[in-house]
Design a protein around this nucleic acid. Structure first.
Length: 719
DNA sequence: CGCAGCACCTTTTTT
DNA sequence: AGGTGCTGCG
């Protein structure tokens, strides 16, 4: 391999990172600075210049997409397949470890993976069995509680009961959940990571093996790692290992699901010899966009610090549009897209970004109306559809009769006379004797605590599962799926249903057969049965967000899902206080800063042109609400902004001299100030408008909620 | 057992 | 507003 091919396309900082001598290294890679390129070239460098074998390399990402892309780009560069190298997601690799060492990990060989939805249902069922009041302990919160602690590496046994009834009961449920999962051979997403960590940590020989094996560990999107993922990296790489992590603290937007932005700071402490390399040259956006994005993110505190720059043009100003309402906002955006397309550009080059999914609606209606093709990201993925999950549950139960989650899901789908009454009896039997539902059925058939009719139904169900299991043994995977669909009655169930939805469900089930036919186990899955591998694949890689034929479409997505993508023309919509930053994040400094990072992520998606819009009035949850321009707009430098005025000026803020969103801060108060009010108590300044004696501030009070106060009368005291 | 009507909630999402 | 999930009835 020619070294020049690896180094020539790189700038100085990138080259530094790619060729850094084997030692811990932190690469702070700004948006659009060639992060993936650095990772790919780094690995190529290690393999072709440093003489590292693929076998010794571990590369971890968060998403399957990133993992696939990384692998294929390395292979393309080196012009050979890279057997032996571990490239995958945290969860995928953890799964691989657990499959390889299922005995040491204390799992049954046929253990199955619970996705978030499976886990939720399972928790709910479990709580019913425990007769826990779902109003006091909402299953959502229980799920959050369990995952939160698992993400921190804390098991129920580590938690102390303090006498706080709420907390203690949570721990009880957590404990029962762990037991139920163990009994059923089920592993949720957080468990994959925790269990794999414990496996490597507590098992000397396993640890030795992987330490020796992985001379180089590389991590993508490091700012998104949670506590356990970080522990995992340290454990696998060893204290002085060659860890090469790439991330951007300014793009950390997943704190709410456990990501620890502090891991970036911690890295330099834990690996004191670590070099830090900054990639600040941006290859994506215009100078104008970068200047504005830099200015915005500068409002955050505790950054590692980084300013993006470009060798390219300043480009056009950022266009700001104050819409009258959300309808007007959508019309404005779509009109601009129409012009863009008329000028001979692609629809697929444009993206409409918003903070929350509900905002897509207006755009969709209008796009539909004008016959413009579009694609909305997000929503249910293939393997998450109800009919597909039913089918998978059959396969799981066939594979492992102890799988209670699967059992509960399909025991009466299609209806076969096993009602709630019967199930309640079976559940309590299972609980009393620590049995799986399946085994509890066997006991019930023996002890007959139910009417003969119910018992017959249960017995028939078990025979059905057994007989399908028997029939499909040894068949090719897709025939196994085919047989199951037929034998279970699932196909028949949807065939009989004459609704439109049932038709698409049938199509999806057909598609499942095709997916099984097309499925090829990865190199790490060859030792599993094809069916187990397929089931794991379905859970870990839920499939495309939407089956997309490559039609030229306008792209609609949340700013979260836009991360990592780029578009020549970007619209950021709904930049209003309460929507973005979201109401729930406004009062907490850390969460507000995460919102600001999200705004930064959104802005840095734009290559050539960026539009930002807000609506002065918006219909949300059925009610009309007046709103104010987002503080993020006010944080952008005016020099980079071109205000697009509607033809007949907007209702409020009609002055032409200063931008519509820019009110002067009222004397003595700025956003985020803590204030005291004689009657309402303590609060935080959230917004302001007007001037002089008309100046008003919006204050969020601890107990009274948000209020608009006229400064001249309110007599606020700053704290 | 299935369906209809009603209360409830509503940020972001990957694995 | 709109979807979801639960309750109560036939």
């Amino acid at each position: 391999m020619d070294v020049t091919a690896i180094l020539d396309p790189l700038n100085d900082a990138q080259r530094d990172a790619v060729t850094v001598p084997a030692a811990p290294c932190l690469v702070l890679a700004g948006a659009g600075s060639g992060k993936t390129r650095v990772l790919v070239h780094r690995i190529s460098w290690l393999l072709s210049v440093e003489g590292v074998t693929p076998y010794g390399v571990l590369a971890v990402t968060f998403t399957n997409k990133a993992a696939h892309e990384m692998r294929s780009r390395i292979e393309q560069m080196l012009e050979r397949p890279l057997g032996g190298m571990w490239v995958g997601t945290f969860h995928g690799l953890a799964h691989r470890l657990l499959r390889a060492h299922w005995q040491e990990a204390g799992l049954p060989q046929t253990f199955q993976i619970l996705d978030a939805d499976d886990q939720f249902r399972f928790i709910k069922r479990l709580m019913r069995g425990m007769e826990i009041d779902e109003a006091r302990w909402p299953p959502r919160q229980v799920q959050w509680f369990i995952n939160h602690y698992k993400d921190e590496g804390v098991r129920s046994a580590h938690l102390e009961r303090t006498g706080d009834h709420y907390q203690d009961r949570m721990i009880d449920i957590y404990e029962a959940y762990e037991q139920a999962c163990n009994r059923a051979g089920l592993v949720d997403f957080a468990e994959l990571l925790l269990r794999a960590l414990e496996l490597v940590r507590d098992n000397e020989s396993v640890q030795q093996h992987y330490h020796q094996r992985f001379s180089h560990v590389l991590v993508d999107e490091f700012q998104d790692t949670n506590a356990i993922q970080y522990a995992w990296i340290r454990l696998l790489a060893g204290e002085s290992g060659n860890v090469f992590v790439v991330g951007d603290d300014d793009q950390s937007i997943y704190g709410w699901r456990g990501a620890r932005i502090e891991n970036i700071q911690r890295f330099s402490k834990d690996y004191s010899a670590a070099r830090t390399i900054r990639l600040e040259q941006n290859y994506r956006s215009t100078g104008t966009i970068l200047t504005a994005a830099n200015a915005l993110i500068a409002h955050n505190t505790g950054r590692l610090g980084k300013d993006l720059w470009t060798a390219g043009d300043e480009g056009e100003l950022i266009r700001m549009y104050a819409a009258y309402n959300e309808q007007d906002e959508a019309s404005f955006v779509l009109e601009r897209i129409r012009e863009w397309v008329e000028q001979g550009n692609l629809r697929a080059e444009t993206a409409i970004l918003y903070r929350s999914n509900a905002q897509s609606r207006v755009f969709e209606e209008k796009l539909m109306g004008m016959g413009m093709p579009y694609r909305v990201y997000g929503g249910l993925r293939f393997f998450e559809r109800a009919e597909i999950k039913d089918a998978l549950a059959y396969l799981r139960l066939i594979q492992n009769h102890q799988d209670d989650a699967a059992f509960e899901r399909i025991v009466n789908v299609p209806a076969r006379g096993i009602g709630d009454r019967s199930l309640t009896v079976i559940r309590s039997l299972a609980r009393e004797r620590s049995l799986s539902m399946w085994d509890a059925c066997l006991v019930a058939l023996d002890e007959k605590p139910l009417a003969a009719r119910a018992l017959n139904a249960l017995s028939a169900f078990q025979s059905l599962i057994r007989s399908i299991a028997q029939q499909i043994e040894g068949l090719p995977l897709y025939e196994q799926v085919e047989h199951m669909l037929d034998g279970s009655g699932l196909l028949e169930l949807h065939r009989r249903d004459k609704s439109e939805k049932a038709e698409s469900r049938l199509e999806n089930l057909q598609e499942l057969i095709s997916a099984a036919r097309a499925y090829e186990p990865g190199e790490d899955e060859v030792e599993m049965s094809p069916l187990d591998a397929f089931l794991a694949h379905a859970a870990l890689e839920a499939g495309e967000n939407q089956a997309d034929e490559w039609e030229d479409c306008v792209q609609l997505m949340t700013m979260h899902s836009a991360k990592g993508l780029e578009f020549p023309l970007v619209f950021m919509c709904g930049l209003e206080e309460g929507l973005f930053p979201h109401q729930r994040s406004i009062e907490d400094q850390d969460r507000l800063e995460e919102e600001r990072r999200l705004c930064y992520v959104g802005m840095t998606r734009a290559m050539q042109q960026l539009y930002m819009t807000y609506a002065e009035s918006r219909r949300l949850h059925g009610t009309e609400k007046l709103s104010f321009a987002s503080r993020f707009i006010k944080e952008l430098p005016l020099e980079q902004i071109d205000e697009v005025r509607p033809v007949g000026l907007t209702q409020r803020n009609a002055s032409l001299s200063s931008p519509a969103w820019q009110d002067d801060e009222p004397a003595g108060f700025s956003l985020g100030d803590r204030v005291m009010h004689g009657k309402f108590g303590e609060g935080v300044v959230m917004n302001y408008e007007g001037q002089g004696s008309h100046a008003r501030v919006q204050v969020h009070f601890e107990y009274e909620g948000s209020k608009w106060l006229v400064l001249a009368y309110a007599n606020l005291e700053r704290l």
